[in-house]
């Protein structure tokens, strides 16, 4: 299992690296595909550490905070531009997204209280919405490296992502958990 995970992570990482020019040629695939893929590598690699009981990470708060700041940094248009113009920043991107976003997110999420998870999900949706608003309404070009039309496209992509994420998270709530239905069918049999 661990081997498979490392392999997948490696594969995704080399994909991001090998098709760098393709991903970075427009902001939609750069911000909404390449960056999340890199973070995903970190999450995959962190799996073995997920069940580690660590006192400093009670409730996953510390790990989630690290991830939150990491995400904030990579949401700055300035960081995106810098990754394109400075090789050092590009290297930092390939290292920090797995290590400072993906891995802590996975480790923190596993420990997080359901209420905290719900709150973070709501927060994620609203941040995606705010990004959509900012990118579709900005009176100026936000990234020097990308065209205005692409900026607009990125705004709409944020919006669609927000909608997709809502559907993904809300749809399962309609049917209830498997435990509930098992319990119910058992009680019906018993009764």
């Amino acid at each position: 299992m661990i081997g498979a995970r490392i392999l997948t992570a490696g594969l995704i990482f080399s994909l991001c690296l090998g098709f760098r020019d393709f991903f970075e040629s427009n902001p939609v695939s750069h911000v909404l595909i390449q960056l999340p893929l890199l973070a995903w590598c970190g999450a995959l690699l962190a799996q073995p550490a997920i069940n580690l009981e660590a006192e400093w990470n009670r409730g996953g708060v510390v790990a989630l905070l690290i991830a939150l700041f990491g995400i904030t940094f990579w949401m700055l248009p300035r960081s995106i531009d810098a990754a394109l113009f400075s090789p050092a920043m590009e290297v930092a991107k390939f290292i920090s997204l797995p290590l400072c976003v993906g891995a802590p997110l996975a480790i923190g999420w596993a420990r997080a209280h359901p209420l905290l998870r719900g709150f973070l999900k709501a927060q994620a949706v609203s941040m995606l919405g705010v990004m959509a608003f900012l990118y579709t309404h900005a009176p100026v070009r936000i990234c020097n490296a990308y065209l205005v039309d692409d900026q607009l496209r990125l705004g709409y992509a944020f919006l669609f992502t927000a909608i997709a994420v809502v559907v993904l998270w809300v749809a399962p709530l309609f049917v209830g958990s498997r435990e509930f239905h098992q319990m119910r069918s058992r009680s019906v049999e018993a009764g």
């Binding site: 700041f69 300035r78 936000i142 020097n144 490296a145």
Partner: peptide
């Protein structure tokens, strides 16, 4: 975290490369 972001944005003055 905020200290790092402060540094990365020149004291929250510059969120874009242009600024």
């Amino acid at each position: 975290g905020p200290a790092f972001l402060w540094k990365a944005t020149d004291g929250f003055q510059a969120l874009t490369a242009e600024d």
